[in-house]
């Protein structure tokens, strides 16, 4: 079959396109780099400023307040374990990276989700794009990310955001569109404007679903930490990556457990925070 049709030079086209992007939007990428780096480093500096014991107490208190006694117990044991194993600083780096990625995810995902929920045309464009973002292997984003943002934590954040943003968008759309039609009719019948309907009715009722989406985004961002470490993002991911390349089973396992502990704490806290609001209505 070879030679019947010449191979489509898709790869070279993309190379040319990325080169063009890199040069044309250099100022933009530089700006983004500065901002993201600022956020991550600011967060990290803040975390490192707080003594380990106080940090553990604060996170445990937060877990207790939002998610109850059981989660608080797990949190305090888990965090002491991480500190004991010597992964406290990498853990903070990971936390700063993940929280930054989630912050950007919500900042981008929520408005897009709201927009798409109001306009069917937008939804029809956004949905296949989300499918593409979620199914394209995450490694592939890393290559242009390095071009645009060079090595370090920033391409890691960017790749995490691309990978983590779909659930926030999807569940924001779902949550808003799930608000019963008769409630929407009622708000319309009293003469609400679009923004009144959105702010006073749709968003509050969609909040539990939106929180579930953000929770999923957090989990996806966490799952990206190892991949992000390949482009030089520091943290627990980097520890795992080093252990893999040096075939140190024990070390890899320790760092892996630290990631799992962080994942469970973040998951439980955000999950309960979402459903707690729902409980108030009953």
């Amino acid at each position: 079959m070879e030679g019947l049709l010449p191979k489509l030079p898709l790869g070279s086209w993309i190379d040319v396109f990325v080169d063009w992007l890199t040069i044309t939007f250099e100022f933009l990428f530089d700006g983004i780099t500065v901002v993201l780096e600022g956020i991550v480093e600011g967060l990290l500096a803040g975390f490192e400023f707080i003594p380990v014991i106080l940090m553990i107490i604060l996170i445990t208190a937060l877990a207790w307040w939002l998610a109850g006694k059981g989660v608080a117990l797990f949190t305090i044991i888990g965090l002491f374990l991480i500190d004991n194993l010597g992964y406290w600083d990498p853990m903070l780096q990971t936390l700063a990276l993940v929280l930054t990625a989630v912050f950007i995810t919500v900042l981008i995902g929520l408005p897009i989700g709201i927009w798409a929920s109001q306009k069917n045309g937008v939804k029809q464009v956004v949905t296949p794009l989300l499918d593409f973002m979620q199914t394209m292997p995450a490694f592939v984003y890393l290559i242009p990310a390095i071009f645009f943002f060079s090595i370090g934590v920033v391409p890691g954040v960017v790749a995490s955001v691309i990978f983590a943003v779909p659930p926030t968008i999807r569940l924001t759309i779902l949550g808003i569109q799930q608000v019963p039609a008769d409630i929407i009719e009622a708000t319309e019948s009293f003469g609400s404007t679009t923004s009144q309907r959105l702010i006073k009715v749709q968003l509050p009722l969609a909040m539990p679903t939106i929180m579930a989406g953000i929770n999923q985004s957090i989990m996806l961002a966490l799952s990206m930490v190892v991949i992000a470490s390949m482009v030089g993002a520091p943290g627990l991911g980097a520890e795992v990556y080093r252990a893999v390349t040096q075939i140190q089973i024990g070390k890899g396992f320790e760092a892996g457990i630290a990631i799992v502990v962080i994942a469970i704490i973040l998951d439980r806290i955000t999950q309960k925070a979402g459903s707690r609001k729902k409980g108030r209505k009953k």
Binding site: D182, I183, T187, S189, F190, L205
Partner: peptide, 22 residues
Amino acid sequence: ELREVRRKKISMVFQKFALLPH
């Protein structure tokens, strides 16, 4: 104009109440 009519002239009661649960 329509919004004004809905606010000032016509109000509506629904079969399934359509109250705001929050």
